[in-house]
Design a protein around this nucleic acid. Structure first.
Lengths: 332, 332
DNA sequence: TTGAAAGCGATACCAT
DNA sequence: ATGGTATCGCTTTCAA
């Protein structure tokens, strides 16, 4: 059997209270005793049970990470950052791929609660106001990453999506483009809305327009993006510049262009968003608005740990600046 | 505060033992009582604490997943499969990216133990014999995915790497190639060794050879693969066909070829391994030996849950067949 | 069919 | 400086 605190106590000829103190550096213990106990712990290969400790009201040192899909490179990179910094701080992370489905979200949140996680990081869009309310009522600390929770005092780390959209537009304008189109995710996702808004805004400032019909909403698959892109490219007035709200959509557009015999960047300039590994492996590689994924992951973890320490500290909303990474897909 | 079993018991005017029975369907309870209690649980929004239940010796319904890097598409897809089937069976999964570093592995394993996970799935190569021994001594159920543990009775799910290597070679032979090279991961990784062995074997059967100097070992980065590929391609006797042991290496090779002005597949045929999303987004897309990642993930979870139920059941080694997915990188 | 009570492994308060 | 003991929320005999 695994050694328990009782085994250590017996072996050391002291009470379990003393062992506990020795472990946690609480109370007063003679240095000598403490060393003895520590030594015995090692000999017995004793490691305190997090379960037992959690039952007395201490942390579980576990946090949940709710994202649409871990197999999506953007979220995989976010997850890696969260995991790394969490690990550094002594926390483990449970992955929860929700596919943006409300039932999966609720089921996962319930599960995480039952497991008494110390906090939940959310990268999934939640539109349903009911479940937001319910979520906030539970006292589990929550922090958002890459998504906003409308109207709620919740710690949040996002990139300035609006600015990102503007950057994409300005870059394309500078290349001399005059006709534009957009491949977007659902409007329900706050970040998607903002990117489009920023893109549009920058065009308007330069006296260009973006017709609603030039904005195509795609679901989350590469295939759908490709199909929507084909529609766009084979329309009466195909655009000369296309802004895709994430790398997967951009890959779809790339394939669509290839199939339609449209050369990139000569006949169609492409700007993407996220700057995941995908933007580096396509041909041509994608100009992409980079989100500082590693930094973002680190900051959410920081925030949530902070909230654990100081539950009443005022909530923050950290907005990081995106950066345009220019690659061959947009410059002739 | 959160409702506990005591609250439910008080509200129902019964003992906590009865509530426990009602929840777990144990013992004898009148149907009526049971319904009453269930109803009250709902009204109180009561959900049993996994922590408390685990302390009495029950499961934690949590498993650890040790992989080199969650941001590597292959492991991200494996993770998604593990997560999905685990979730279906009521288990959560904790991700542990080890970067194949022994210290990280050991630290994670320790952490997982302290958290009393029900099992550990390992997709990280472990060469260090000591830590294997130590790992097996702990009574945590263990299962391997996509990696083998030399000489140990451990549940394992792998693809037939040897056969995969053969498939790659035969395909290239059929295309009429006569000079070959390989981009590989460390020999320490069992799967890498087997793939090379299979590749070589198929060549030998057709009276071709693979010089040791034609096998380049790369570390885990795209950049290094690219560099090694350049060396290969700019050597005195560049190969006409290149087998890459995973998709990331293949992307590196692709980029190296592009930079060296070598056309694919005309001047160099490329066959990759894994068939992750990367193989579909490159240009040309990569011919790749597909591992049934979803199926593999599902099977490991099945195995580990099985082992939880029947600790003494004989260990299995499931070998799945890979499938060659032919794309443009290897056919003129 | 139901309940009282011991126990799981730790923490923390209060004595000593 | 150290120890006794109640407690956390639940499961599980064993009685009633």
């Amino acid at each position: 059997m695994k050694a328990t605190i009782y085994d250590v106590a017996r072996e050391a000829g002291v009470s379990i209270a003393t062992v506990s103190n020795a472990i946690n550096g609480k109370g007063k213990i003679s240095h000598k005793r403490r060393q003895e106990i520590l030594h015995i712990m090692e000999r017995l290969d004793y490691h305190p049970s997090v379960i037992a400790s959690a039952l007395t009201g201490k942390r579980t040192y576990t946090i949940g990470l709710l994202i649409p899909d871990i197999s999506n490179p953007f979220f995989a990179e976010i997850a890696r950052a969260v995991e790394d910094y969490g690990h550094e701080m002594g926390y483990s992370v449970i992955i929860c791929s929700t596919d943006n489905q409300i039932e999966r979200i609720e089921r996962y949140v319930l599960l995480l609660e039952q497991k008494s996680v110390d906090g939940i990081i959310i990268g999934t869009g939640i539109e349903d106001t009911d479940s937001i309310e319910r979520l906030l009522k539970k006292k589990v600390p929550i922090a958002m990453i890459a998504r906003e929770l409308p109207s709620a005092a919740v710690n949040t780390v996002v990139v300035d999506d609006f600015a990102g959209g503007e950057m994409a537009a300005r870059h394309l304008l500078k290349q001399g483009h005059q006709t534009f189109a957009v491949l977007a995710e659902s409007y329900k996702v706050s970040s998607s809305r903002e990117r489009i808004r920023g893109f549009k805004q920058a065009l308007v400032e330069s006296k260009f327009e973006l017709a609603d019909s030039a904005i195509m909403i795609c679901d989350y698959t590469l295939e759908d993006a490709k199909q929507k892109a084909v529609m766009l490219l084979q329309s009466d007035s195909p655009p000369s510049a296309l802004f895709c709200c994430n790398d997967i959509l951009a890959v779809g557009a790339l394939q669509a262009a290839k199939e339609s015999g449209i050369r990139i960047p000569e006949q169609l300039a492409l700007v993407s968003f996220d700057n995941t590994i995908l933007s580096r492996v396509t041909d041509p590689p994608l100009t992409s608005v980079a989100q500082p994924m590693e930094h973002m992951g680190r900051r959410v973890v920081e925030m949530i740990i902070e909230e654990l320490k100081e539950p009443d500290v005022v909530r923050q909303r950290i907005v990081l600046q995106p950066e345009l990474i220019v690659r061959a897909s947009s410059v002739r």
